[in-house]
Simulated assay, not measured.
Amino acid sequence: MALRVALPLVGAVFFLAAAAVVASNEEGDALYALRTRLSDPDGMLQSWDPTLVNPCTWFHVTCDHASRVVRLDLGNSNVSGSIGPELGRLVNLQYLELYRNNLNGEIPNELGNLKNLISLDLYANKLTGTIPKSLSKLNSLRFMRLNNNKLAGSIPRELAKLSNLKVIDLSHNDLCGTIPVDGPFSAFPLQSFENNSRLNGPELQGLVPYDFGC
């Protein structure tokens, strides 16, 4: 009888362990895809070895108890290149720290898949294009800092749905139109949007938003 009880338990443990390995392998593949996109003159990514079972031993990568990647911290690492859509596969990620580098290209729409993301720090790079509307799906997001880039276009009104957002910084870009006033935007200081020469200030309450100059 004891053997009959133990076998299902062993099977369950094995299944959970195998599932964790599969998940970590997928996350390792996503991170290594990012690695191939980046120029790394200071060797910050030299530990990113795709032959390892999972990426939890790589520098600048933090995992939880189940070997799932929850933090990627490459802030101020002197890397350059594009971000790429692969990061959207890191569905357990909570902190994405890529600030103060030389990253270029657009912010991938796929970052909207990171439903557990708490902090998105892409500031002080050379990112272009628009702010993806898909970021409005990040319901856990509390901090969004995209300042000091070359982002253009209007501020997506969909971002007003981010009820947990406490800090936003879109300053020092080339954004245009008006600033939303709904949801968390009602509490953000104007300093969060300064030095966007084509941004025309907050929307007037009760009026349909109009993106002047966009």
Rank of each mutant, 00 (worst) to 15 (best):
V167I: 12
Y95G: 07
S140V: 04
K133V: 13
E97M: 14
N102P: 01
P50L: 09
P132R: 04
F212L: 14
D211V: 07
L190I: 15
S171G: 10
S24I: 00
N164F: 04
F188C: 08
N25Q: 13
A23Y: 00
N164S: 14
E158T: 13
R142P: 02
S134M: 07
N25E: 12
F14C: 15
F14K: 10
I131F: 07
G112I: 00
V21H: 11
I168N: 03
G177D: 08
T57M: 06
L165C: 06
I131N: 02
Q205G: 13
H60Y: 07
C63H: 01
L9Y: 12
L9T: 07
L199I: 10
D42Y: 05
N200C: 15
E27Y: 00
V79G: 01
A17I: 10
Q46H: 10
A18H: 10
L207N: 14
L52W: 03
L117T: 01
L199K: 01
E203Q: 12
L146Q: 01
F185P: 02
L3Y: 11
P202W: 04
L141P: 05
L138M: 06
N173E: 12
L96T: 04
T57D: 08
D169H: 05
L96C: 10
P189N: 13
A30G: 07
N116E: 12
S186M: 11
C176D: 10
K166N: 15
L122N: 00
P85E: 11
G153V: 13
I83F: 07
G213A: 11
G177N: 09
Q46C: 07
M1P: 11
N148F: 14
R71S: 12
K115M: 04
L135S: 02
S24T: 01
C63Q: 03
A33D: 15
L117S: 07
H172C: 06
V208F: 13
L138H: 01
D174H: 12
L96A: 06
L93T: 01
N109L: 09
P184T: 05
P189L: 13
N195K: 10
E110H: 11
S39V: 11
P85V: 03
G43Y: 05
L170Y: 04
I155H: 03
N76T: 14
F15K: 12
K166E: 15
D42H: 05
N102M: 05
P55V: 04
S171T: 03
Q94D: 09
F143Q: 12
S77Y: 00
S39Y: 03
L74Q: 04
D40N: 13
V5G: 06
V61C: 02
N139C: 08
F185L: 12
K133S: 15
D174A: 10
L72T: 01
S67K: 01
G112W: 00
L34C: 07
L72Q: 02
D40R: 04
G213H: 15
G105M: 06
G84C: 08
L114S: 00
E97C: 09
S67R: 00
G81M: 03
G183V: 10
S80E: 05
N148T: 06
L141I: 04
P202N: 08
N102Y: 04
D211W: 06
T128S: 09
V69H: 00
H60S: 12
D40F: 07
I155G: 06
K166T: 15
D182R: 14
P184W: 03
A124R: 02
E27M: 02
T178A: 12
N149G: 05
P184K: 02
V22F: 05
D121R: 13
